Amino acid sequence: MIDLDIINNQDIIEYKDDLIVLLNKVVEKSLEVENVEGDIEVSLSFVNNSEIKELNRDFRGKDKETDVLSFPQYENQELIKQENNIVILGDIVISLEKAKEQAREYGHSFEREVAFLTSHSMFHLLGYDHDTEENTKLMREKEEKVLELLGILRKS
Rank of each mutant, 00 (worst) to 15 (best):
M1L: 06
D5R: 11
I6Q: 01
I7M: 07
N9C: 07
Q10A: 11
D11V: 12
I12N: 08
I12D: 09
Y15F: 15
D18M: 04
L19M: 06
L19G: 08
I20V: 14
L22Q: 13
L23Y: 00
K25P: 01
V26F: 00
K29R: 15
L31D: 07
V33M: 03
E34R: 14
N35G: 03
E37N: 13
L44N: 13
F46N: 11
V47D: 07
I52A: 08
I52V: 06
K53Y: 12
K53P: 12
E54I: 07
E54Q: 11
D58P: 02
F59I: 06
D63G: 04
T66A: 09
V68R: 13
V68M: 14
L69M: 15
P72T: 00
Q73R: 11
E75Y: 10
E78Q: 10
E78N: 15
I80P: 00
I80M: 02
D91Y: 06
S95G: 04
K100S: 05
Q102C: 01
Q102T: 07
A103P: 06
E105F: 12
E105M: 08
S109V: 02
S109M: 03
E111H: 04
E113Y: 04
F116V: 04
H120F: 12
S121I: 04
S121W: 01
H124G: 14
L126Q: 09
T132N: 01
K137P: 11
K137Y: 13
L138S: 05
E141I: 00
K142L: 00
E143A: 02
V146A: 08
L147I: 02
E148Q: 01
E148D: 10
L149W: 13
G151V: 10
L153K: 13
S156Y: 06
